[in-house]
């Protein structure tokens, strides 16, 4: 007898065993949601038309990322939104137009199907909004206690148009550093959503795809030198990467850093710095100084770039250094977080 999947059902080991239960899960949850022709064919691989790819650029971009988050759902999204947007953003910051995604689910026995369905629907919506197809996937179920509810891996393929060259090593002294919006919203929202810190603040993750904004940016300013989405490690980690890769130094202006007051409040209580907080819908770009103001103005017209602003500049060196001009007017060195932030004060 074919087990029917209802929202009251919890995932059992049978859903990963390759039999009818698994087929039922795939059909009623994944294909129902994603419904791409590639996926519906249920072959072992997606088959992509090379001519279509070649028509859009001269290089493929290919990336993968795994999404592990507690809690699975939070204000502004869930693990599924992250899994789609995160991988899309990793393609887009290289200048690529994202086209195809794969997704693999590792599900812990006992997960509610209703939750899984919400996650999958969020993935569908995010992919649709971004105009990409989820073309291949996989599902595994692990026994209770051998996983943490749900892990998702996505890989993505995109095409880089001819002439686009974005790389951290290309930063040059004098260039300006732009951030596409407020810092730390995702990190603060996740801390809040865990619910165990008794924080009272209205916080939403900034999780969103950035390739629309990036397309606009590259259209306005094809000379963009470097671009990264500021996820784990926050803007601080990206800037250290830029400084290392380019052999330049980076100067930030503390009074220019966009931080929402409620995020600032959380940072103050926790003693953490929004520069180190994760974002899921913010990018940092380095552009020639002459183009910076025009680019920021254009970005602000896009929903993903409303709060875009210039936050710093590239200096001659020494390579790898990141410094902050403080509100007091002095300059301090910015830590590269190595694991937990430990006090330096003796």
């Amino acid at each position: 007898m074919t087990p029917t999947i209802t929202d009251q059902t919890r995932i059992t080991m049978a859903h990963g065993a390759g039999g009818r239960a698994m087929r039922s899960l795939i059909e009623s949850v994944f294909i129902e949601a994603f419904g791409s022709t590639e996926l519906a064919r249920m072959e072992d691989q997606a088959r992509l038309d090379m001519a279509r790819l070649a028509a859009q650029g001269d290089r493929l971009a290919f990336t993968t990322d795994s999404y592990v988050i507690d809690p699975l759902e939070f204000p502004g999204g869930n693990v599924g939104t992250l899994a789609v947007n995160g991988t899309l953003n990793d393609l887009a910051v290289g200048g690529a137009r994202p086209l195809y995604l794969s997704c693999a689910f590792i599900i812990e026995e006992g997960l509610e199907v209703a939750l899984l369905r919400r996650v999958v629907h969020a993935m569908r919506d995010a992919a649709q909004e971004a105009g990409v197809s989820i073309v291949t996937g996989d599902t595994k179920v692990v026994p209770h206690g051998k996983g943490d509810k749900l892990f998702i891996n996505t890989s993505g393929i995109g095409v880089i148009p001819k002439g686009i060259e974005v790389a951290a090593s290309r930063c040059q002294p004098g260039d300006r550093i732009i951030v596409s919006g407020t810092l730390g919203d995702h990190g603060a929202a996740i801390l809040q959503a865990r619910g165990d810190l008794a924080l009272d603040a209205e916080l939403r993750s900034d999780c969103r795809s950035l390739h629309g904004l990036i397309e606009l940016m590259l259209d306005q300013c094809p000379e963009i030198r470097a671009m990264r989405d500021a996820t784990r490690g926050g803007v601080a980690a990206i800037l250290h990467e830029f400084a290392e890769a380019s052999g330049c130094a980076v100067r930030l202006f503390e009074d220019q850093l966009p931080v929402k007051p409620e995020v600032r409040g959380v940072c103050e209580i926790l003693g953490l710095d929004a520069l180190h907080f994760a974002n899921e819908g913010k990018l940092v770009a380095v552009v020639p100084a002459a183009q910076a103001d025009g680019l920021v103005a254009r970005m602000q017209q896009h929903p993903a770039g409303l709060d875009a602003c210039i936050i710093g500049e590239i200096l001659d060196g020494p390579g790898g250094r990141v410094q902050v001009r403080t509100l007091m007017g002095g300059e301090r060195l910015l830590d590269l977080p190595v694991g937990e932030m430990l006090p330096r004060i003796c």
Partner: peptide, 14 residues
């Protein structure tokens, strides 16, 4: 924010 501080300690958040 005493409750937050207590939770930070219990959860090991900074």
């Amino acid at each position: 924010p005493l409750a937050t501080l207590q939770q930070m300690i219990e959860q090991g958040v900074n």
